[in-house]
Design a protein around this nucleic acid. Structure first.
Lengths: 171, 171
DNA sequence: AGGAAATAGTTTAGGCATAAAATAACTGGA
DNA sequence: TCCAGTTATTTTATGCCTAAACTATTTCCT
């Protein structure tokens, strides 16, 4: 199969087919984006109103919650799929606010270990419970027996995109 | 069914069920977010590298593309689901760069009509073609015969969330 | 040992996002 | 008319996000 890279093959009767495929993929993308921004906007709003908190801060705490012994700072950008530079001020503020600690490793002075404080864990658990309830409320109308199927399809999308990216990276 | 709002019912054997439901919904949300940010990140990267352009700018042009007679500025925040204040500088720059025009209405001097220029339309069409091809490339591995089903499921998710939000708004 | 390359993290510059307040123009009624 | 309320848009303050350049440390090679 030829790899379409920039434009649909203009040479043949398949141009129309290619356009149609583009549209189908674009439609999927637009739906993904619409669902995500709808939900994200509402979650953001509630985090702010109810806890005066932001989602990126919550995401950092969520990663730390399952790591009793803390986490190397460098793990965060990978897990949260954000850039490292972005995290610096977010982690700074979480430290200032007493939710996490940042300790330089004494094996390698470049490395920092971050760890949730007792207070941070308590706050996080409270917010996580709301977070789950908010999602359940927002998605309540979507039939529960279709959840797993949808999650599976999204896993496949994720896998497909990851593979496509990896492929390209080797170029 | 009782409306779970803040926390799962602590009173009964159903607490575990509620927790399980939260997890299912949370799982769906995390997949949505993962797919969207994976694709969005790659699209953003390519827009920047290939066209020195950003997605929000592209999104504005996309709305204008189907409106030969232009669009009232106030329509954009609604259609793009972003705040009005956000659009001001984006529109400013698109005008500066010659992709669109901004004309005050003479029926109501508060209102502005924005309209794509010929140059803007040409540039947009070129980028839109790439955009479609990028998506087709990224999603190539996902079976084409499952696209429609997934789009339908996402439409249902979107509808469910919209209804939940409307419901809440009336409160 | 000593210097090049790699790695962890921060800083900088620029753009996107929101909420809330401000400005300007219109509308409708006393 | 005038003035209170509404609507369209911009401004301000704050935070997230990236890419690219930078600092500090470690590692690896000769």
């Amino acid at each position: 199969m030829a790899l379409a890279k920039e434009s649909p093959p203009a040479s043949s009767k398949n141009a129309a087919d290619a356009e149609a495929a583009y549209r189908a993929h674009t439609r999927l993308w637009l739906r993904l984006l619409a669902c995500t921004s709808l939900i994200e906007g509402e979650l953001r709003r509630r985090f702010r109103e109810e806890y005066d908190f932001t989602m990126p801060r919550f995401d950092v705490l969520a990663q730390l919650d399952r790591e009793p012994s803390g986490l190397v700072l460098g793990e965060l950008p990978k897990r949260l799929m954000v850039s490292a530079g972005n995290l610096t001020p977010i982690v700074d503020r979480l430290v200032e606010d007493g939710y996490i600690t940042r300790t330089p490793s004494n094996l390698d002075r470049r490395v920092q270990i971050i760890c949730m404080t007792v207070e941070g864990r308590k706050t996080f658990r409270r917010m996580a419970k709301s977070h789950g309830a908010w999602l359940a409320e927002l998605l309540a109308e979507f039939p529960a027996n279709r959840l797993d199927g949808l999650v599976g399809a999204l896993d496949d999308v994720k896998g497909a995109v990851r593979n496509a990216l990896q492929h390209r990276e080797q170029t």
